[in-house]
Design a binder for these strands. Structure first.
Length: 584
DNA sequence: GCCGTTTTCGGCCCGACTGTTTTCAGTCG
């Protein structure tokens, strides 16, 4: 029986901490990796790990063996893991924060702890201050300087950078590198190319003959605040990404004939690449950032393009968003119909200054026209959202009228009168059905009552989906990246009910949400629920966030036909009509 | 700790860069 209320993220955290503590303790590195692998597996699960535990199928998870399955079960039953507690007795857990210092790994942390008595960032800074690292083996003057820089850096970066903030910085530097003398081509790689929701470092890759010269120029580009590494093929710098905030950019320089191997290699993910190299090794080949080659003769089998590398290994050229070792190696051919930005024909969740938007109805409509959209739904807040200046009945009726009138004189764009309606504590909606019936499109949102009670959260969301006027459930889990965890919610039940009732589930494209996230979106599409990718724009420029929603969908293997707003205005209208008339 | 169409034991991906312990270990991706 499950007696704890630990979430997947909580359980993943315990395993990740065990891995770090074991590593500081000097445990076998493969054992450490196993714990990391389990952490990642649990974190990536789209459903509650409890459901798998109940079916007795924990050990069937990729990378989870008998021993880990037992540990997960213990965590679910008791809320704690004996190994984790033992490790905390043995190794001070405050040491974990030291691992975040760039250049600081488990060996050095262990050494600082055992030989100098360092326990935390603070005590490390104090030890350096008191000169207690002087004469310590492996810690010369330069190392100590780097540690101090690292501690200062930690205070400035404040965690991983959100996709929407990282992408513009990366694009600016990619363009700058492409312009450097001797550079034939420059591309973005790494987690940004895969569209991950948060980014650690930015990875750039370029083709040039004289690597040292390119790195030299790179480290002097405007915006660079510090140079971390400057070699013949690799350079690392810090740049300012926002006020007081920095991000690291790594640039690798490769020869043209290695470009494909390098782009594949530096795009990752690490897990995907490990699997790929295993496939190579099994055939007597070896794969690195320069080429796929025969291990015995050294003959190069593929290197110029990613297509060549994958083809040589008997695989379709997998889109970067799929390279996570989440089943992509089973694919016989590359998915052709993954949703793309060009497929999106409209945005069905946006605000105007009638509630808390920055721009007028006319301005938002013009912005949608500029982006070539076929339709939009204007969805200002309902009355319960007082802080967002939500519309009461009278104001909503006038707003609907204004939208319909504007629609009549707008060419090439259909403008629907919608609303973002709050789901109340009891699962009812913030507007009466007769008022909802006057709207062309209804977004239902859980803004205020998402709590720790997963059953209650789920019930309220299900109730909203069952209302014949509700067309999409917005940002279902309420998570805010780097700020607030997803509320516990039975996503599987939501998907099934959305599919049954003919409602859609939103992928909210705004940078702080990306909710549903990739694995949830995948679950929804598998369950036959339609997704709707919306920007939730509160200003005209926010309509450009659509690309982040689309890439999140792609990471969830979502196809064009799984996304409602890739359909025509007529088809969207039919989708709304079907739910109202069938009353499911 | 995980895993298995060579294996239930003995493997487990690969190379660059840095500082420093002058020949390599630690870290990173």
């Amino acid at each position: 029986m499950s007696n704890s209320n630990l979430t997947n993220a909580d359980i993943a955290r315990v395993f990740a901490e065990c891995a770090d503590l074991l590593e500081i303790d000097g445990a076998d590195s493969f054992r450490v990796s196993s714990y990391r692998r389990v952490a990642r597996c649990i974190n990536d699960l789209p459903t509650d790990v409890r459901e798998i535990a109940v079916r007795g199928e924990l050990a069937k998870l990729e990378g989870v063996g008998k021993s880990s399955a037992q540990k997960i079960q213990t965590l679910l039953d008791t809320g704690a893991l004996p190994l984790r507690l033992e490790l905390a007795q043995k190794v001070p857990e405050t040491l974990l924060e030291l691992l975040h210092i760039p250049g600081m790994g488990p060996k050095k942390v262990a050494q600082l702890w055992r030989e100098v008595g360092v326990l935390s960032l603070e005590s490390l800074a104090a030890a350096i201050d008191a000169g207690r690292l002087e004469g310590l083996k492996g810690f010369g003057a330069r190392s100590v300087e780097k540690i101090l820089e690292g501690i200062a850096f930690l205070k400035r970066i404040g965690g991983r950078t959100r996709l929407g903030e990282a992408a513009p910085v990366a694009e600016r530097f990619r363009a700058a590198v492409a312009e450097l003398p001797g550079v034939a081509r420059a591309e973005i790689a790494g987690s940004l190319r895969r569209g991950c929701e948060t980014i650690g470092d930015l990875d750039l890759l370029c083709v040039a003959d004289d690597g040292a010269a390119v790195i030299g120029h790179f480290t002097k580009l405007p915006g660079v605040t510090r140079v971390l590494v400057a070699g013949d093929t690799k350079g690392s710098v810090l740049v300012e990404r926002a006020a007081e905030r920095e991000i690291q950019i790594d640039l690798r320089v490769v020869p043209a004939e290695s470009f494909g191997a390098a782009w594949q290699y530096f795009t990752g993910s690490k897990e995907h690449n490990v699997r790929l190299r295993e496939l190579a090794v099994r055939r007597g080949w070896t794969l690195n950032e320069y080429a796929l080659s025969d291990a015995s003769t050294g003959k190069v089998l593929a290197s110029r393009s990613e297509e060549d590398i994958y083809a040589a290994l008997g695989l379709p050229c997998l889109p970067p968003e799929l390279r996570e070792d989440r089943g992509e190696f089973e694919l016989k051919e590359a998915p052709r119909d993954l949703v793309a930005l060009e497929d999106v024909r409209g945005d069905l969740h946006l605000h105007t200054d009638a509630s808390d938007g920055k721009h007028t109805l006319e301005q938002m409509v013009a912005a949608a026209q500029e982006r070539g959209y076929e339709y939009i739904a204007v969805t200002d807040h309902s009355q319960a959202s007082v802080v967002a200046n939500g519309l009461d009945r009278e104001r909503l009726l006038r707003h609907i009228d204004a939208i319909h009138k504007l629609n009549e004189r707008t060419r090439g764009l259909t403008v629907w009168a919608g609303a973002e309606v709050d789901i109340m504590a009891d699962g009812s909606l913030d507007y009466e059905d007769d008022l909802l019936a006057q709207l062309d499109w209804v977004v239902a949102s859980n803004h205020y009552h998402l709590g720790r009670d997963g059953d209650k959260n789920t019930e309220r969301a299900l109730a909203a989906l069952r209302n014949p006027h509700v067309n999409v459930l917005a940002h279902p889990t309420g998570r805010m990246i780097n700020r607030r965890d997803a509320a516990p919610l039975d996503i599987g039940a939501l998907c099934a009910e959305a599919a049954r009732t003919g409602a859609a589930l939103e992928i909210n494209a705004s940078g702080s949400r990306l909710d549903l996230k990739d694995t949830h979106a995948r679950l929804a599409a598998q369950a036959g629920a339609l997704l709707c990718i919306n920007c939730d724009a509160h200003a005209t420029d926010q309509l450009d966030k659509m690309r982040y929603g689309v890439i999140t969908a792609r990471r969830g293997w979502v196809r064009r036909q799984d996304v409602l707003n890739t359909r025509s205005a007529k088809q969207v209208a039919a989708f709304v009509r079907a739910k109202r008339t069938q009353g499911r």
